[in-house]
Amino acid sequence: MNPHPASPAASSRRRFLSQVALAGAAVPLARLTPEAGAAEPKAAAPAAAGPRAPSVVHVFSKPLHWMSHAETAKTIAAAGYGGIDYTVRVAQGHVLPDRVQEDLPRAIDAAHAAGLKVEMITTEITSAREKNTETLLRTAAKHGVKFYRLGNFNYDAKLGVSGSIEKLKPAMQELAALNASLGIHGALQNHAGTRIGSAIWDLHLLLRDIDPRALGVQYDIRHAVVEGGQSWPVALKLLAPWIKCTDMKDFKWEQSPGKAVIENVPIGEGIVPFDAYFKLVRELNIGGPMSVHLEYPPFERTPNMTEAEKREKFPGLMKKDLTALKGYMAKHNLG
């Protein structure tokens, strides 16, 4: 037996989460939609019609986590970006989850002071029942964050593919309900490898019964091309209603006999078919903020680089990625 019974508040929260999970996360979504009471999107419905709002291009703050909030904001603003995708997590976190109430508002204020938005953040959240989840999301929503990325989920070898997905569904229903109650959207990133979401179609199996306004996908075209080769447009069309924010980066294959290694490169210097991608994004009316991920040297794998050298080299490279990205967006009339 547990010698320390849960507090009444904790018990109440667990009852609430269980109830909304069983009800299919059927809570009001007035803060997520322009009209309360509007019909929920069907799982097979196409992306919503209507004009596409301009996408604010953020920088994923992971390679800058050694900087202060103010210096990070000034560096990103100087490179011409419109926002910061802050890491709010223990691993390379600009904001630690245990200090989210104190430090996230300060980080967002620093961004605003530099003329930047913080429409999206990256977290390690995998459950509504984790210690910091509700506090983190409530604080983020209060300060204008609209989207957050979840943590990662692994397949259980004993349960298999279908069993792992079915086991995870109740937790996703609970998160969707919490998101809806707070007016914030959660998103799972498709990531190359063997985790849930790497194949991309598995995200549809997981999310198809969940309202896209509360929980969906942070679509990463780089990872989609790594795993999808030429078939990535099929999964993009399948998941379009759930895609509310996206990631941008590029890569190429370094080949040798019997193997190929992924090498991340600046946008436009790899094999990601950005023209085909943005053409389809426009056709499917996919919008929301973008997060540029800087995952090539010198942003990563340069252990001997000094902070002074990073401050000198990073802004120019960041601006180069943004210029390339904006070129593709302009070509396809995406503001």
Score class of each variant (00 low, 15 high):
94 H>M: 13
66 W>E: 14
74 K>A: 15
56 V>K: 11
79 A>C: 02
89 R>I: 04
43 A>S: 14
95 V>L: 05
72 T>R: 04
98 D>R: 07
90 V>C: 11
59 V>S: 04
71 E>C: 03
95 V>P: 10
80 G>D: 02
81 Y>F: 15
81 Y>N: 06
102 E>R: 09
51 P>Y: 06
71 E>Y: 02
60 F>M: 08
69 H>A: 14
58 H>C: 11
50 G>Y: 07
94 H>K: 03
99 R>Q: 13
83 G>N: 07
92 Q>L: 15
66 W>M: 14
66 W>R: 14
57 V>Q: 04
64 L>M: 14
61 S>Q: 09
53 A>I: 08
43 A>D: 12
75 T>D: 07
68 S>V: 03
43 A>W: 11
86 Y>K: 01
58 H>E: 07
57 V>Y: 02
83 G>H: 06
70 A>G: 05
54 P>A: 07
56 V>E: 14
94 H>W: 02
55 S>R: 07
41 P>E: 08
69 H>P: 00
85 D>K: 01
88 V>C: 05
101 Q>P: 12
41 P>Y: 06
46 P>H: 08
98 D>F: 08
93 G>H: 00
42 K>G: 15
61 S>L: 09
76 I>C: 08
50 G>P: 04
56 V>T: 14
60 F>K: 03
47 A>L: 13
60 F>C: 09
77 A>D: 09
93 G>P: 00
103 D>F: 07
86 Y>D: 01
78 A>L: 01
88 V>Y: 02
98 D>T: 05
85 D>F: 00
53 A>L: 14
42 K>D: 14
67 M>S: 03
73 A>P: 01
95 V>M: 04
66 W>N: 13
99 R>A: 12
82 G>P: 07
77 A>L: 09
100 V>P: 12
51 P>H: 10
91 A>N: 12
77 A>C: 10
103 D>T: 11
92 Q>D: 14
87 T>W: 05
49 A>M: 04
71 E>Q: 14
50 G>F: 07
47 A>R: 11
54 P>Y: 03
45 A>E: 13
67 M>D: 06
80 G>F: 01
90 V>I: 13
48 A>W: 02
57 V>E: 05
91 A>F: 13
65 H>Y: 14
94 H>Y: 01
59 V>D: 01
48 A>Q: 10
75 T>L: 15
77 A>G: 11
72 T>S: 15
87 T>Q: 14
87 T>N: 14
81 Y>L: 08
92 Q>S: 12
69 H>M: 04
69 H>K: 02
78 A>N: 06
66 W>C: 11
62 K>Q: 07
76 I>S: 06
60 F>H: 08
94 H>A: 07
88 V>G: 00
64 L>T: 08
80 G>Y: 03
80 G>S: 04
76 I>M: 06
80 G>C: 02
60 F>T: 00
47 A>T: 12
93 G>S: 03
50 G>W: 06
71 E>R: 05
60 F>D: 01
103 D>A: 14
52 R>K: 06
82 G>K: 08
56 V>W: 11
79 A>T: 00
89 R>Q: 05
55 S>E: 13
101 Q>K: 15
